[in-house]
Amino acid sequence: QEEEKEIKRLAKKFNASEEEARRAWKKAGGDPETAEKILKKKG
């Protein structure tokens, strides 16, 4: 599933848990760029 792959990639890229990545993904409405910004800010 595309979403799961994206979440795993985000978690790995930002050294975050999949739970954090999933939360960022949901907050971003499934937009990878926005999710990255959220995780970057958090990191």
Rank of each mutant, 00 (worst) to 15 (best):
D31Y: 03
G43W: 14
K37M: 08
K41C: 11
I38M: 08
A11G: 03
G43Q: 14
E18T: 07
G43L: 13
K27M: 12
E2W: 15
A11C: 07
T34S: 10
D31M: 04
E33P: 06
K5M: 14
E19F: 06
A24Y: 02
E33G: 09
Q1R: 11
A11L: 04
D31Q: 06
R9V: 06
A24S: 03
E20S: 09
R23A: 15
K8S: 11
A35R: 00
Q1L: 14
K27I: 14
R9T: 05
F14W: 15
S17P: 08
N15L: 09
E2R: 09
P32C: 08
K26M: 12
K42Q: 15
E2F: 12
E33W: 12
R23Y: 14
S17Q: 03
I7S: 02
E6W: 14
G29W: 05
G30I: 00
P32R: 14
R22C: 05
K26E: 14
R23C: 08
S17T: 14
W25T: 02
E3S: 11
R23E: 15
D31H: 11
G29D: 10
K26L: 13
N15F: 05
E33H: 10
K13M: 12
E2H: 11
A35G: 00
E4H: 07
E20Y: 04
L39I: 05
F14K: 00
I38Q: 03
G43Y: 15
K12V: 10
G29V: 05
R9Y: 06
K5G: 09
R23W: 13
L10T: 01
E4R: 07
D31T: 03
N15A: 08
S17N: 06
E18I: 15
L39Q: 01
W25L: 12
K41H: 14
A16Q: 08
E4M: 10
G30Y: 04
K13S: 05
A35H: 00
E36G: 10
E6R: 06
E6F: 12
R22K: 06
F14V: 04
K40T: 13
E4T: 07
E36V: 04
A28F: 00
D31E: 05
K42V: 15
I7P: 01
G43C: 09
G30F: 05
E3F: 12
G30S: 05
K8R: 12
G29Q: 10
K42G: 15
K37G: 05
A28W: 00
G43R: 10
R23K: 13
A11E: 04
F14P: 01
K13F: 04
K26W: 13
I7L: 04
K41D: 15
G30P: 01
E19S: 10
E19N: 06
A35Y: 02
W25C: 03
G43F: 15
P32F: 11
Q1F: 14
I7G: 01
K8V: 10
S17W: 02
K42T: 15
E18Q: 09
K42R: 07
D31K: 06
I7Y: 04
P32W: 14
I7N: 01
K13Q: 09
A11N: 01
A28K: 00
A11Q: 05
A11F: 01
R22P: 00
E4P: 04
E3L: 09
K42Y: 15
K12H: 11
F14L: 05
A16T: 15
E4D: 13
E33F: 11
E18V: 12
D31A: 04
Q1K: 14
R23L: 12
K5R: 14
E20G: 02
Q1T: 11
E36R: 04
E19Q: 08
K41Y: 14
K26G: 09
G30K: 06
A16M: 09
E4L: 08
S17M: 03
N15S: 08
E2C: 10
K13N: 04
T34R: 13
E33K: 13
E2K: 10
K40L: 15
K5A: 13
Q1H: 13
E3H: 11
E6A: 13
P32N: 06
A24T: 02
A24N: 00
E33N: 10
E20N: 04
W25P: 00
K40H: 14
I7T: 02
T34M: 15
E33T: 09
A35F: 05
K12C: 11
K12L: 14
E36W: 04
L10K: 00
A35K: 00
A24D: 01
A16E: 06
A35P: 00
A28H: 01
A21Q: 00
R22W: 08
F14D: 01
A21F: 02
P32Q: 11
K41F: 14
R9G: 04
E20W: 05
K8I: 12
K40R: 14
A35Q: 01
K41V: 05
Q1N: 13
E33S: 13
A16P: 00
K42C: 07
E33A: 12
K13V: 07
R22M: 06
K41R: 08
G29Y: 09
W25Q: 02
K27F: 08
A28V: 02
E36T: 05
G29H: 12
A28C: 04
K41Q: 11
F14E: 03
W25G: 01
G43A: 11
E36A: 13
R23G: 10
G43K: 12
E6Q: 11
E3V: 12
E2S: 11
A28Q: 00
K13Y: 06
S17E: 03
L39P: 00
E6H: 13
K8W: 09
S17D: 06
A11W: 03
D31I: 09
E3W: 13
G43D: 10
L10Y: 02
K40W: 14
I7K: 00
A24F: 01
Q1I: 13
K27Q: 15
E20R: 05
A35W: 02
K8C: 05
W25N: 02
K26H: 12
A28M: 00
L10S: 01
E4F: 08
E3I: 14
K41A: 10
N15V: 03
K13I: 07
A24K: 00
E33D: 10
K13H: 06
E4Y: 08
E18N: 07
A24I: 05
E19C: 09
